[in-house]
Write a protein that binds this DNA or RNA. Structure first.
Lengths: 166, 166
DNA sequence: CGATAATTGTTATTGATCATATCAAATAGT
DNA sequence: ACTATTTGATATGATCAATAACAATTATCG
């Protein structure tokens, strides 16, 4: 096939059987794929969250648990895990860790001795308060800086709608 | 009927040391956390993608690789992996799978015998064409249905901006 | 030139995340 | 009272992400 008859330009430059070599790749239609930009953005957001939260050593998942416990004291593990989309088996180790750090406690329910009632400790409340300040002041603030406050709010609304209705 | 003083229900039940028990939890400030809604939405989007793509057995990551190879034939593994944010070691098994299904081929580069030049096969191109139709017609279309086309476009732009600038 | 450094694809390995099956204890349903 | 269900828990497997190391090749630069 095509031994080597005359060829226009490419002939003189490395035969161009292979591309420019240091040219950035063309991302093409990938840029319009919602799932693609969402995955990339999500990793960036979580990474930024972790950097902001570094002094408190709290992951996004841990922070969400503490927030939920503060707003809903006295619920059991199944309820909390379910509303966060965490499977009960995987929630056990997570709680172990939070309890080991004395951010919350498991207490046997008086009405149903199978279940554990979850509550924040004072230390948990104090840490959560500090965490909230970091998130609002450094994390969400940075996102507002990048997107504009109105857009940030609109973005959250759209994402919530997807999570609800898709 | 007014509440009879005799049995206001909750009054006599467990003194409310523990909550309503079947009331949904209040997610509170979690609803305003960008990272939270983004993670939830992202899982939904990928899940929907997988359902739509079920007949072709293509994951979002595999689809993105095929898209990139179509638009950028003849690049090597490092280049493709890097632009997708995949680490080179993890990209090997991914390519093995795509090559085993005969969607693409690794060819030794003529100019640098260390690297493998990647190209779609005819089967790969045909499958990608079918995949694109499914994505546009059933996946992205559904997202436009939920958000409105203008909002879907705006959403992608904002997510791309986060991925770029955060 | 030739010694050394860097790059490419690859393997091995570890840790994190996610999902399923199963269990004992307790409760609910009949 | 007997059965079914629920709760927290354990064990385990699957998938994904990250690091180190290696052989082959190429680049660098005295």
């Amino acid at each position: 096939m095509r031994g080597a008859p005359s060829k226009p330009k490419a002939e003189l430059m490395a035969v161009a059987a292979e591309p420019a070599a240091d040219t950035p790749l063309d991302i093409g239609e990938l840029a319009d794929l919602l799932g693609y930009s969402m995955k990339r953005a999500q990793l960036k957001v979580f990474d930024h969250f972790l950097r902001v939260m570094a002094p408190l050593h709290l992951t996004p998942a841990q922070f969400s648990v503490l927030l939920l416990l503060e707003r809903n004291p006295g619920r059991n593990q199944t309820e909390v895990a379910n509303t966060l989309g965490i499977l009960r088996p995987n929630f056990v180790a997570m709680l172990d860790s939070l309890e080991a750090r004395e951010f919350c406690v498991r207490k046997r329910s008086s009405s149903d001795r199978r279940s554990h009632v979850l509550m924040l400790t004072e230390k948990g409340k104090a840490t959560l308060a500090r965490a909230k300040k970091l998130v609002a002041g450094k994390h969400e603030a940075r996102l507002s800086e990048v997107l504009g406050e109105d857009n940030r709010v609109a973005l959250v609304q759209m994402l919530a709608k997807i999570a609800r209705e898709l």
